[in-house]
Simulated scan of single mutants.
Amino acid sequence: MPKPNSAALDFLMTRRSRPAKTLTTPVPDREMLKKLLTAAARTPDHGKLEPWRFIVLSKPALQRLADLVPRHGTALGIDPDKITKAQDQFGKADLAVAVICSPKPSEKIPQIEQIYSAGAVCLALVNAALAAGWGANWLSGWASHDRAFITEGLGLAAHETVAGFIHLGTETSAPPERPRPDLDTITTWVDA
């Protein structure tokens, strides 16, 4: 019988992202953030390609991104309410980490597996932050998928995309529990 890590399992059974709009200062300092990024970088990575990287966005960097949102949203014909929401996502935040999917050429590791690994990094960073007592939320949105915005705002190469913006800070209120999936409707047991 394996030896359980009960504390870790209890954490995973009760983990809950914190809405980004409820996060405030203080935010993790550089030393703490390095610890959280180190934990996130321990994600499954078939082939040890490290097909992801981090861009740490402080308040001034987030405000710069917020200032870019209206021009890019208008050019795409995005609804004004969605433009405001995206602008607030950046402008009202104090700290975020952009997890960048940066696939590497590989004959052995398909690009889709590298993309999955970048997504796993996002969840690992959220979980590391929550486990360390911080509030955290994984967001994306139309701006994160707009090539012009991510090129101008983050300087991404043509092969790179945003896997997510992980917002970090001190939570101001605990969110209520939300409905969880019914395992019986999403699970198939195959015995033969």
Rank of each mutant, 00 (worst) to 15 (best):
H167R: 06
A128M: 06
L49I: 08
P70S: 12
H145Q: 04
D88R: 15
L130W: 05
V27L: 08
S58R: 13
G133V: 13
T84S: 14
F11G: 07
W138P: 02
D10E: 15
L12F: 15
P44V: 02
L168S: 04
A93W: 07
K21T: 12
W52V: 03
T151P: 00
T14D: 09
A132F: 06
K21H: 14
D81M: 10
N5A: 13
K82D: 02
H159S: 14
A40N: 13
A129D: 05
R180D: 07
A124F: 10
A131H: 11
T43Y: 03
L154D: 06
D29W: 08
G141T: 00
H145G: 01
T38W: 05
P19V: 02
L139D: 08
G164M: 03
S106P: 12
L68K: 04
L9D: 13
R64T: 15
Q114I: 01
P28A: 12
G133I: 13
S106M: 10
D184G: 14
T172A: 11
D81Q: 15
E160Y: 09
L154G: 05
F165E: 05
T188S: 15
A66G: 14
D88M: 11
T38R: 11
E107K: 14
K82E: 06
A192Y: 10
A40E: 13
R64N: 14
L49P: 10
P176S: 13
K48F: 03
I150M: 02
E113V: 00
L36Q: 10
R180N: 09
G169I: 09
W142S: 01
G155M: 09
G135M: 10
N137G: 00
A41C: 11
T161F: 01
I78M: 14
A20K: 08
M1G: 13
R64F: 07
K59I: 00
P19K: 09
A8Q: 12
K82A: 03
V121W: 02
S17N: 09
D94S: 14
S58C: 02
L49Y: 12
A118L: 03
L125Q: 08
A163K: 01
H72R: 10
S140H: 09
N127P: 07
D81V: 06
T84F: 03
H145R: 08
V69L: 04
V99L: 03
L12R: 11
E50M: 04
D45T: 08
E113R: 01
K48L: 04
E113G: 00
W138R: 07
L168H: 05
P51H: 08
F54W: 05
Q63M: 12
S17F: 00
L68G: 13
D182G: 07
S106A: 10
F165D: 04
Q111M: 06
Q111I: 04
